[in-house]
Structure formats: structure tokens, C-alpha cells
């Protein structure tokens, strides 16, 4: 059966919803603007960095955090589809069994692209600049979106298992908030307690952030080489994570989708 065409139909359905639900667009645009402004002027005023302004240090980190949070909507949206009987309807149609999940995870990256554009514009307004070539810049965005896409598949499984949109949203906040903070997203990790620093070094959120910083040219010229392999090769390390997460959660989510109607 036609995975591609069915997935496109589902993606279109989900993108239409983005256009028609103002809350989603507000969440995807206003909250990134708010975060950039708050961190830039509140934290930025107190965090002295060597060789680079805080705006340039901040933006890659806050982009990473925002697209990861953007991907959590996958779980809530699938739980909502289950609750409203839409998954039952889809399961009764002669369509590809993966299309509902592919269409969902892809559409959620569309929303992430909107967030990214808004944040880059806000960043430009508060002093952030990219100093790299166009291909590097594009690669940075692709690394961010690839990681967010893998998180979407993880959240798909969570949504299909938990089945209650509110619980999915609260639970994912509790996990993802610390995950994006125990990292190099907003402050250098050098002065973290040892345990936290090691965790932060190998946290894929750090490597995503580091990859974006390097590819945007947002690293200090005299910055020392990071100790951890993960941060020396942030793009590769991030893509390894993306591969592992997808290899585990794509089959698990599809299996859970097939079982979800059997109750």
C-alpha cells in the first residue's frame, strides 16, 4: 500500500490543523520569542563568556530546546486522535499502517520550522548573527530537525501508550525540561558538579546544540577543544542518536498503533 501518498494525506490533514488552531501557532511563535528575549537579557546580563556575546551563544541552545519541546506535541496529538475515535477510523481503512505516524511526525516538524524561523528573526533582532556558509547553516537546521523528528517518534509511542493528552503533555515536560537544562544549552558546563557535567557532555541535547553552534559559527575563536568525544564530533554523535532512537521507536510505535484499536 502507498505509504508515501497516505502519509502525505495525513500530513496535509495535520498541517491544516496548525493553520486553524490559533493556540498552536501562538505556542510555536510567541513562546520562542519570549524565551529568546528573557534569556538574552536576564541570563545574558549575568553570564560573562570569553570571546563571544551571549546572544550568539544562546540562540543555538534555545533552538535545540524549542524544537525538542515542539516534538512533544506528537504524543498529545496522537492521544487526542485515539480519544476521539479517529485512530479507529484510520485503522478500518485500507491504508498504510505507518502513514498516520509518519504524517504526524512530519507535520510536527512543519510546526518546528515555523518556530525556527521566528526564533532566527528574533535572534537577529537581539544581536545574534550566523558567521558560516549557507550549506553549513542549512546543515545546522537539518541536524536540529532530524533530532526533533526522532524525538517525535519517541513521543508517538508515549502518546499511544498513555492515551490521555493532558498526562502526555505533563509527563513529557517533567522529562524534557531537565534534559534540555542539564546540557550546554544556556550556560557553559565547566562549573557543573562532576556528575552533571559528564551527563551534560554526553546528553544528545548538548551535541545538537554544539553542532548548531559550530555550523552557525557561534563558537569563540579561542575556545578550547571539548574533552568529550560527543562534543568533538557533535554532528556525528547527534546522528548516531537519531539513528538509534528511530531504529527503536519507529517499529515500537507502529506496533503500538496497530494494537491501539484492540481493546
Amino acid at each position: 500500500m502507498s505509504l508515501v501518498s497516505d502519509s502525505l494525506v495525513i500530513t496535509r490533514r495535520n498541517v491544516i490543523k496548525i493553520r486553524r488552531v490559533p493556540d498552536l501557532v501562538v505556542f510555536a511563535t510567541l513562546s520562542p520569542i519570549m524565551f529568546v528575549l528573557l534569556f538574552r537579557y536576564v541570563f545574558g546580563s549575568a553570564i560573562p563568556l570569553e570571546g563571544i556575546g551571549y546572544a550568539e551563544y544562546l540562540l543555538p541552545g534555545i533552538l535545540a530546546q524549542t524544537v525538542i519541546f515542539g516534538s512533544t506535541v506528537t504524543g498529545g496529538a496522537l492521544a487526542e486522535d485515539l480519544q476521539k475515535g479517529l485512530i479507529d477510523r484510520f485503522r478500518s481503512l485500507p491504508m498504510s499502517r505507518a502513514a498516520v505516524l509518519v504524517g504526524r511526525t512530519v507535520a510536527d516538524q512543519v510546526l518546528n520550522v515555523v518556530s525556527i524561523v521566528v526564533m532566527l528573526l528574533t535572534g537577529l533582532a537581539v544581536g545574534w548573527r550566523a558567521h558560516s556558509s549557507v550549506p553549513e547553516f542549512v546543515l545546522a537546521l537539518l541536524v536540529l530537525l532530524a533530532f526533533a523528528f526522532s524525538i517525535s517518534w519517541l513521543m508517538a509511542l508515549v502518546g499511544l501508550v498513555v492515551r490521555t493528552p493532558e498526562v502526555v503533555n505533563n509527563a513529557s515536560f517533567i522529562v524534557i525540561f531537565p534534559l534540555t537544562f542539564i546540557a550546554n544549552t544556556f550556560v557553559p558546563t565547566d562549573n557543573f558538579p562532576t556528575v552533571l557535567r559528564v551527563f551534560a557532555d554526553w546528553n544528545p541535547v548538548s551535541s545538537v546544540t554544539q553542532a548548531a553552534r559550530e555550523l552557525f559559527g557561534n563558537t569563540a575563536a579561542n575556545a578550547p577543544e571539548p574533552d568529550a568525544w560527543s562534543l568533538q564530533h557533535p554532528v556525528v554523535y547527534t546522528l548516531i542518536w537519531v539513528g538509534i532512537i528511530l531504529a527503536v521507536f519507529v517499529p515500537l510505535s507502529i506496533r503500538q498503533y496497530e494494537k491501539a484499536a484492540d481493546r
Binding site: 500500500m1 486553524r20 477510523r89
Partner: peptide, 29 residues
């Protein structure tokens, strides 16, 4: 070869009536 109408009207609230039917038709290939 079947059609199913469940106990809860399984329509997508955000799509129009026309879009709902168009979507299901396309998923019927």
C-alpha cells in the same frame, strides 16, 4: 470493502466537512 461508523463520530474537528470526506476517500486509495 467495508465502511465503519463507530459510536463516537470519528470526524476531524479541524477539517471542514468536505476535507474530512476528501481525506477518507484518498485513504481508500
Amino acid at each position: 470493502v467495508i465502511g465503519l461508523t463507530g459510536q463516537y463520530a470519528a470526524v476531524d474537528e479541524y477539517l471542514t466537512g468536505f476535507e474530512n470526506l476528501e481525506m477518507v476517500g484518498q485513504l481508500f486509495q
